[in-house]
Design a protein around this nucleic acid. Structure first.
Length: 554
RNA sequence: GCCCCCGUAGCUCAAUGGACAGAGCAGCUGCCUUCUAAGCAGUUGGUUGCGCGUUCGAAUCGCGCCGGGGGUACCA
């Protein structure tokens, strides 16, 4: 990868300068920063290394930069290494070298862009994990898109990634849900029955009650209410999970595991965890409940583990669940993707790790800000309880899965975003995803028309047009983008890269004709067919990383 | 009250502490007899909420205000 090579060459240059006495022998190098200058005229990469060293060396930054440049080793990769005011060192890649990279990309195929940052680290990304008490809404879809794309990116960055959905199939909310299912079922049979106060009032529960009544008749009236609620709750749970799974599949999200909260209590996991916490002195009984004393390790407040009615609360499950992740299943790194409404919980999760004797850095809580939902400018307050929803399914049907993913992906997780359903419908045809996909389809069309031409022997060194070079340059950024997105857990960078890449292709398409019937064009045609084939590969790769389709025609 | 996130073009948002702050959409002007016009070229639009600091350099870091969102349950 280019960045690593430049890093190595820079260090070599500094050492050479030191040996020649041009720089002090004792010099602590900072971490080398390499970036793409905003202005193309400044070159492909730049480093402020000399600016950082100037103070230590006691000389003007520009002088230091010139000294490093003077001792910079020769390499075929670079056409120019230049010191620039106030003290940057700018690197310009050689055109010949760039052109040859088309062959490198084609040889790498689908693995082009992959890096070995993760070194196979066993990593789990847990995302969405909303209560299975209703359909997925568009806000949860942001979680799905961030989590799924991040998992893709980490995979490409060399991590061994496992995707998981945590099902809250027990607890207060689940009980409310089961109670609602029972009441709506009874009502569907024409019996007057009041809704539980904390029930789920959405239309979809009425619908579910009707279905249950139609399928099972009055079967559940002939057993104790408690038993009927339990059984109906199970059926309703199963259906809701199935519908959530289908909703997620609509936008191309699949899991390796759907993990049941209940299962944590079906073996001795929970007991074991309680023993560890007790041994660590983190458990206290008070007010009839059992508490996790987070305050002992600097937490802002203690948390209930076992409620006064004897049932474990969500935090007890969370601890057992993470014990299962790290100790039982041996994940080295776990990322939980959470909405910002769970942020207060983050410090306690870190304390929990300490209490379990695990390194808190092995757990990353990735928070994304909530989506403000609007319908024609009016804010829609989301609630499954009251039933006011904009469902993911509804939006996908209106706008299409790729546009939904692109929209939700293109903002940084920490930025709040507005989603206006009416606006999304209106503008769906203008979604940038089509710009990217169109570039892919255009290439597919060229390759179809090229039909029988065997371009395998094409000479890529013929690719010297500025638009050709610019396009290849853009492709060479892919590994850097993957590294950026992976290290900063910021998959939104992919969307911007995809647009830049498509833009570079469209410019090439304008300037350089690929197919020609003239005999004298044969060589350049073959070279350009290689170029567009490589571009198609990279576009498809980026689209796949983002979980979107790469159409052959549009 | 305290804690967390955010405030950048008309709108939705990008921008590792780096060089002249960028896209998409919306607006305006042009370009289809040759590989897909879902495209291309040009153009309008900014005191990066306000103030003070930190340093070679601040949209980015610190402090104080102002504004928006979220949290502060024996819900999850």
């Amino acid at each position: 990868m280019i960045l690593r090579e430049l890093n190595r060459l820079l260090k070599e240059a500094v050492e050479t300068a030191q040996r020649a006495g041009a720089l002090p022998a004792e010099l602590e190098l900072p971490e080398i920063i390499l970036e793409r200058p905003k202005q193309a005229s400044l070159g492909d990469y730049a480093t402020p290394l000399a600016l950082q060293l100037a103070g230590k060396v006691g000389r003007r930054p520009l002088e230091v930069a010139e000294t490093i440049v003077a001792h910079f080793p020769a390499t075929p990769m670079l056409a120019r290494v230049q010191a620039a005011r106030p003290g940057f060192i700018n690197f310009t890649l050689s055109q010949e070298w760039i052109a040859r990279q088309v062959d490198t990309i084609l040889a790498a195929g689908e693995t082009f862009g992959n890096i070995d940052l993760g070194k196979g680290k066993k990593t789990q990304v847990e995302f969405v994990s909303v209560n299975p008490t209703g359909p997925l809404h568009i806000g949860s879809a942001r979680n799905a898109v961030i989590g799924d794309t991040l998992a893709n990116v980490l995979q490409a960055a060399g991590y061994n990634v496992y995707r998981e959905y945590y099902i809250n199939d027990r607890g207060t909310q689940f009980d409310n849900f089961a109670a609602t299912a029972y009441v709506r079922y009874v009502q569907a049979l024409g019996i007057d029955e009041p809704m539980p106060e904390a029930g789920y009032f959405g239309q979809y529960m009425i619908e579910l009650g009707r279905q249950l009544a139609a399928e099972y008749g009055d079967k559940f009236l002939h057993m104790p209410r408690e038993e009927a609620t339990r059984q109906l709750g199970e059926i309703a749970l199963e259906r809701t999970i199935a519908s959530i799974r289908q909703d997620l599949e609509l936008i191309g999200v699949y899991y390796d595991c759907w993990f049941s909260e209940r299962s944590l209590y079906q073996d001795d996991t929970f007991q074991k965890v309680m023993e560890i916490l007790r041994a660590a002195g983190m458990v206290e009984e008070r007010e009839g409940a059992v508490w996790f004393t987070a305050t002992k390790l600097g937490g802002d407040k203690d948390e209930v583990l076992i409620r006064s009615d004897g049932t474990p609360g969500y935090f007890a499950s969370d601890i057992a669940y993470h014990y299962n992740k790290f100790v039982v299943r041996g994940f080295e790194w776990v990322i939980d993707v959470w909405g910002a409404d769970h942020q207060g919980h983050v410090p306690r999760m870190k304390i929990m790790m300490q209490a379990l004797g695990l390194d808190p850095d092995r757990l990353t809580l990735l928070l994304y800000q909530l989506v403000t939902l609007k319908r024609g400018g009016e804010v829609v307050r989301l609630s499954k309880r009251t039933g006011d929803l904009i469902t993911l399914r509804e939006v996908v049907e209106e706008v299409g899965p790729d546009a939904v993913r692109f929209f939700l992906l293109s903002r940084a997780a920490e930025s709040q975003m507005d989603f206006d359903l009416e606006l999304a419908k209106e503008q769906s045809n203008e979604n940038p995803v089509y710009y990217v996909q169109y570039a892919h389809a255009r290439i597919a069309s060229i390759l179809r028309k090229a039909g029988g031409i065997d371009y395998r022997a094409g000479d890529t060194s013929l690719l010297q047009h500025p638009s050709e070079i610019a396009l290849i340059r853009e492709m060479l950024r892919l590994p850097e983008i993957i590294e950026l997105a992976a290290t900063r857990l910021a998959p939104h960078h992919l969307t911007y890269y995809a647009m830049d890449l498509a833009s570079a292709f469209h410019a090439f398409y304008r300037d350089c004709r690929v197919l020609s019937s003239l005999p004298e064009d044969e060589a350049i045609t073959k070279a350009r067919l290689k170029l567009v084939a490589a571009t198609k590969l990279v576009l498809a790769k980026v689209l796949r990383l983002m979980g979107m389709s790469a159409p052959e025609t549009m």
